[in-house]
């Protein structure tokens, strides 16, 4: 043992100097390459946005504002009213969040607060897997299972409605909502639970009156992130919402076809002439979508930041 140790020690001693020099070099290399990669990511985002602006901005002076923000979308007749698309996206997204929020929060509460250890260990990875299902697969599922169900149960002329899309989107945003909300519940200090229990509150009273309200900013973040995912979703929505560009103005519109911004771009981009007005109009919608999701994510990020800041103070 001793014999083995001694040569080792001496070798490390002799190696020490060149090794140190090499490590500063490799350190420098690694550091600068990481920096390049990091900055290039930001650079790509900026470039994409610039590209989007270059292709999309022309529509705002090629066509009158009254036309762009009109209520009819007939690109073949040079009528580019984007309002039905914006409202369609908003309608489907809000409806999906209204469905996903209670489900997501309840699941998070169950996973974090109620489920025994072994159930939690099974459920958490399952929820992660849920997030990995390709949206086109979900779209298939929506077309062939949910849409017929909606049609027969609601006695509607078609199953491809805003409601079907909302159901599917709710399902797709659930993993995000559950995992972020669960983290938020996890971050609630044990001392709150102790205090409530020590006062004679039951487990449910503690959860609903103390733990969930204390995690509300995190839950709001979860909803915003889920919304960001829902509004940007394309494939599944295109497959199940029916894609009729009509103004969804009443509650009944929920059970009629709508067309979202994303579906419009995806469906029509293949058949427009590059550089045409229609082409610019689609990119214009892309700009609107970008700004919308940007703000939603900004609000979500701000809430996360605020939570961390307060958590640090405590």
């Amino acid at each position: 043992m001793n014999f083995n140790l001694a040569p080792n020690e001496s070798s490390t001693l002799t190696m020490e100097k060149p090794k140190a020099e090499r490590s500063t070099w490799s350190e420098f290399l690694v550091e600068s390459s990481i920096r390049v990669v990091g900055f290039s990511t930001i650079g790509f985002v900026v470039l994409i946005f610039l590209f989007l602006l270059r292709e999309g901005l022309p529509i705002f002076y090629e066509v009158s504002p009254g036309n762009i923000f009109g209520t009819r979308w007939y690109p073949t007749f040079d009528i580019f009213g984007s309002l039905p698309l914006i409202l369609g996206s908003a309608y489907v997204t809000v409806a999906s969040i209204l469905i996903a929020l209670p489900l997501g929060v309840c699941t998070a509460v169950f996973v974090r607060e109620v489920a025994p250890q072994w159930t939690r260990e099974i459920l958490k990875p399952l929820i992660e897997v849920l997030a990995g299902i390709p949206s086109v697969v979900l779209g298939f599922f929506g077309m062939h299972v949910i849409a017929p169900l909606v049609r027969t149960n609601l006695d509607a002329p078609t199953g491809l409605t805003a409601f079907t899309g909302a159901l599917l989107l709710a399902y797709m945003s659930l993993p995000t909502i559950i995992s972020v909300a669960e983290d938020a519940l996890d971050a609630v200090p044990k001392s709150y639970r102790d205090a409530a229990l020590a006062m004679g509150a039951t487990k449910w009273q503690t959860i609903w009156r103390i733990v969930v309200p204390a995690a509300r900013s995190g839950i709001a973040t979860a909803v915003m992130l889920g919304m960001g995912r829902a509004i940007g979703e394309t494939m599944a929505v295109m497959m199940v919402t029916g894609n009729a560009a009509r103004m969804p103005l009443s509650f009944n519109s929920l059970f009629m076809p709508v067309r979202t911004m994303t579906a419009t771009i995806a469906a029509e981009m293949g058949e427009v002439a590059s550089g045409s007005v229609h082409y610019h109009a689609l990119f214009g919608i892309g700009i609107m979508l970008f700004i919308l999701t940007f703000f939603i994510n900004l609000v979500a990020a701000k809430a996360i930041f605020k939570k961390r800041y307060r958590g640090g103070l405590r």
Binding site: S191, Q205, P213
Partner: peptide, 23 residues
């Protein structure tokens, strides 16, 4: 029970006291 570190709920002063009687 009163704990080592003050642990009021992140709610208003009134709600903190009212919690127990309410539940």
């Amino acid at each position: 029970m009163v704990f080592q570190r003050p642990n009021p709920f992140p709610q208003s002063i009134f709600e903190n006291i009212a919690f127990g009687p309410k539940v």
